[in-house]
Design a protein around this nucleic acid. Structure first.
Lengths: 325, 325
DNA sequence: TTGAAAGCGCTAACAC
DNA sequence: GTGTTAGCGCTTTCAA
């Protein structure tokens, strides 16, 4: 790779002049500019980004922390973040945290040593004091984290809508497969479920809520067990689609017809809900849009210094498919 | 973030000495070493990786080019690459190419400007001459690319096994939903299908092969059409699992029972095949293992200079599930 | 065993 | 308008 010095030499100017034409700042004579551009062209010169970053003290890289990209909810988010970052000239770094604090801390330090430009956090259990010491723009995505700015969805209202819809289509005994208690989205969705169900006669929380940890297997086993114990259950609200699919699979194992014997509704609106049989009814989030917005906020913070923007909340939408009546 | 100079000052030594104790090279007095280490500790000093990279001329980042992380085949691969890279102290960059040459070229140049350490390519239509000019370790993964070292699977033999298995379980008229013609894995799988089928009486290639482009929708429509045109089809070999699931969905739309009326087998062994109803029989690849191996090769090339290693081929394995008899 | 200094490739004062 | 130069934070000769 050619360096700025070689370009300067070929064009017969100083490196400062080359730098000026590249960055379009300062005054440059038209003829000089042409000479420099010709030299750049001829050498196929591309400025070394590492040197630039060292000088500037901050890199044009944006990282995304997710629990695990193998969970089908995250690829779409990752895609949105990458596309948006790229569009503005930033490079995308993916970090799978496994919800592990050690890993997160290690990543954070590695990125800091690379003078990372910004971080989008879907997963973070990094201690508050560490976060405060770090002077890098961050935004929380899909859940709330410490006192970060966040981009989320109205989870509680979405859950209320899900349960009400189940009721409207005839379900009387509705169970909930819940997500991890320490994740705000899961907690909110559970609250929404309770908002509706606690108004029902004889509703007993313990009997109708089982933890599925946002995983397929977790939900499969949880659903199987709770339905066997309470055969009167005729509807299930799973806190995410992956678990919704797990419930579908459990219904199959129990020889229950969906939606006739058991109606199922999920949450998220990921692709996987379309390909199952029956296809999964769900509460859809604007996933791509949210990822995009998170990056826009980060970039805004990086480029301008206005840290004074607010959290944003998107609205969910009921997507009717075949797993409900 | 503290700098090496601050550490040197605090420890009462020169920056060279600090550098020496960090990198454990050159002679250092035990006492000096202790002083320096204490200073590092006290300041919570972490060397600036950008400066190191600038000096060294090559960074500790490894990139992965995939067509699209939203295709469920790639997250597992990405995960393998990331885990393996991290384990050796490298940072992972994800690049979605959309099989678009422009995008790939743009990525390549961006990474080159960051003095990227190595690249794992699942997708690349970058011209050979460009590739040759670039002095960065690269390996092709899951498919063959130009004259890169590759990590693949015995696709053709796997396809033969798939079709034979369909025959063994009673299928007489087996169709093939093929992948993109310009992708070596898809081409090999089609060859394997033909290896078997061309020995059958009255087999007509045109009637039984439909292109699905490795996508769910592509396969859904292709399968629907070909089966309607040739109702005698009683088995389908889809060139990948995503398409296999598409075929399952098509069968449902056509009111065909799987596997009684139509048996379906896929290729890849991704998670999604387990969650459908019926679960998808498939030819499994050791996906994680392959991703891991590709990175090991890259790192080997980066750290030692022995470019003389060979391509590697893994063996597939038949995974029987419910979509075949 | 340690320090001084050059230099990785770039940008931005500052001088002319 | 353009060139000279210091310096971003590090590593590595070369001297001492």
């Amino acid at each position: 790779m050619a360096t700025i010095r070689e370009v300067a030499k070929l064009a017969g100017v100083s490196v400062a002049t080359v730098s000026r034409v590249m960055n379009k700042n300062g005054y440059i004579n038209e003829k000089t500019k042409d000479k420099v551009e010709a030299a750049i062209q001829e050498l196929d010169y591309r400025p070394n980004d590492v040197a630039r970053t060292l000088f500037k003290g901050t890199s044009n890289m944006i990282a995304l922390f997710v629990p695990d990209i193998m969970n089908p909810f995250f690829p779409e988010l990752a895609r949105a973040v990458e596309d948006t970052a790229n569009k503005s000239g930033y490079t995308f770094i993916l970090c799978n945290t496994d919800n592990n604090r050690e890993k997160e801390m290690k990543y954070l330090h590695t990125l800091l040593q690379k003078t990372i430009g910004g971080v989008v956090m879907v997963s973070s259990s990094i201690p508050l004091e560490t976060l405060h010491k770090v002077d890098v723009p961050m935004v929380a995505l899909d859940r709330e984290i410490a006192d970060m700015i966040s981009v989320t969805v109205n989870n509680r209202a979405g859950a209320v809508e899900a349960v009400r819809y189940l009721q409207k289509t005839g379900c009387r005994r509705i169970a909930h497969i819940s997500g991890p208690a320490d994740t705000t989205s899961a907690a909110e969705r559970k609250k929404g479920y309770l908002d509706v169900m606690q108004q029902e006669d004889g509703f007993c929380e313990k009997d109708y809520i089982a933890p599925g940890e946002y995983t397929f297997d977790g939900a499969y086993h949880a659903a199987k067990e709770i339905i066997q114990k309470h055969p009167e259950i005729d509807g299930v609200f799973a806190a995410n689609d992956l678990m919704g699919v797990g419930v579908l699979k459990a219904a199959e194992a129990l020889h229950l017809r969906v939606p006739e014997d058991l109606a199922v509704i999920g949450f998220d609106g990921i692709e996987i809900g379309k390909i199952t049989t029956p296809a999964l009814t769900t509460i859809g989030q604007p996933i791509y849009e949210m990822g995009k917005r998170a990056v826009e906020i980060i970039i805004d913070q990086m480029e301008n210094d206005q840290k004074e923007c607010d959290s944003e909340q998107y609205t969910v939408q009921l997507i009717k498919r075949q797993s409900t009546k």
